[in-house]
């Protein structure tokens, strides 16, 4: 369980994280989604106490991370930047990490096997490929058999096999009742792994929804209707669950009504239609619309306060 309350981080005059409040629950995979520079990695560094928040608090399993006597059992993390000494072998890296908690060679060999690094475990980590480096980082994250697993862009540099392996691993960890928090800037990736989404843009919280809910909203069909009698048509279609927007004269974007219903009602009222097209937004488009709006919103507020 991770609980962030009004978490903020300022670097100079750049507000990298802006009053984030969210809870990451156990038993599911929570995707932490946002475009480049949204503040995902900064938030994760604050969760681990590597960067101090400028405001707000974040707790891991009920306590500030630094207050835990057994931090490796509480949360295992893979950070964005490599966090391994290039001159040390993978096994020695894990042995030194585990030694801080009295975790020994047996567990180290176990996680090495789990991530598939057995053959290269004695080699210098500096010579590792991007994908091998990610696997070593994941081995380090799992070393303490932690209640929370937090991975920053884990699929970076992995081949399709590796990506499939990560997906299975994350699902398995969540199924064991762990809290799994994974960042990505790709909606398509999260759509295949996550159960819940926390979406950020420019350091602000944009959405905190289940994937199912996000999908339902995103795939809500919009029907584009063109008619010379647009005003009359708008009155005809209006209703509690219906949203109608019109960009240009004679054009309506209707959501909440199926195409057939719109056509039938227009015919019954004797209104002329020049176009009736259903368009379905993809998850990726929904995500991009959401984050684009955030950017514009941030720009507007900055302008007002100046």
């Amino acid at each position: 369980m991770i609980e962030a309350r009004d978490l903020s981080k300022r670097y100079g005059d750049r507000l990298a994280v802006d009053s984030l409040t969210f809870t990451v629950a156990p038993g599911v995979v929570t995707g932490f989604l946002g475009p480049n520079g949204a503040g995902k990695s900064t938030t994760m560094r604050m969760i681990l106490g590597l960067d101090a928040p400028t405001g707000g608090t974040v707790r891991v399993n009920g306590r500030r991370y630094a207050e835990h006597r057994d931090p490796l059992r509480q949360i295992g993390a893979l950070l964005e930047a490599k966090a391994v000494h290039t001159g040390r072998s993978a096994r020695d890296h894990l042995l030194a990490l585990g030694a801080t908690h009295g975790i020994g060679r047996r567990r180290v060999d176990e996680v090495i096997d789990l991530v598939g690094l057995r053959e290269v475990a004695g080699k210098r980590a500096g010579g590792f490929s991007l994908g091998m480096g990610q696997r070593l980082g994941i081995a380090a994250a799992l070393l303490g058999d932690p209640a929370v697993v937090m991975l920053d862009e884990p699929v970076n540099g992995l081949d399709p096999d590796g990506i499939r392996w990560i997906r299975g691993l994350l699902r398995g960890l969540a199924a064991e009742g762990r809290t799994v928090f994974v960042s990505s800037h790709l909606m398509s990736e999260m759509a295949q792994t996550a159960d819940h989404l926390i979406v950020v843009g420019r350091g602000r919280l944009l959405a905190d929804v289940s994937l199912a809910e996000f999908t339902r909203q995103a795939s809500r069909t919009t029907v584009r209707v063109r008619s010379p009698q647009a005003a009359a048509l708008r009155d005809l279609l209006a209703g509690p669950d219906v949203t109608i927007t019109g960009g240009e004269p004679g054009l309506l974007e209707v959501s909440g009504l199926r195409r057939e219903v719109i056509g039938d009602r227009a015919a019954a009222a004797g209104l002329t239609l020049h176009e009736l097209t259903a368009t379905e937004a993809s998850l990726e488009e929904a995500f991009m619309t959401m984050t684009r709006d955030a950017v514009e919103y941030a720009g507007a507020t900055a302008g007002e306060t100046r």
Binding site: A81, A83, V84, A140
Partner: peptide, 16 residues
């Protein structure tokens, strides 16, 4: 050397 390689983040996350 730990700062140059990023190892320091592993060290400090393990012993916060």
């Amino acid at each position: 050397g730990e700062y140059a390689t990023g190892m320091i983040r592993t060290s400090l996350a393990a012993v916060p």
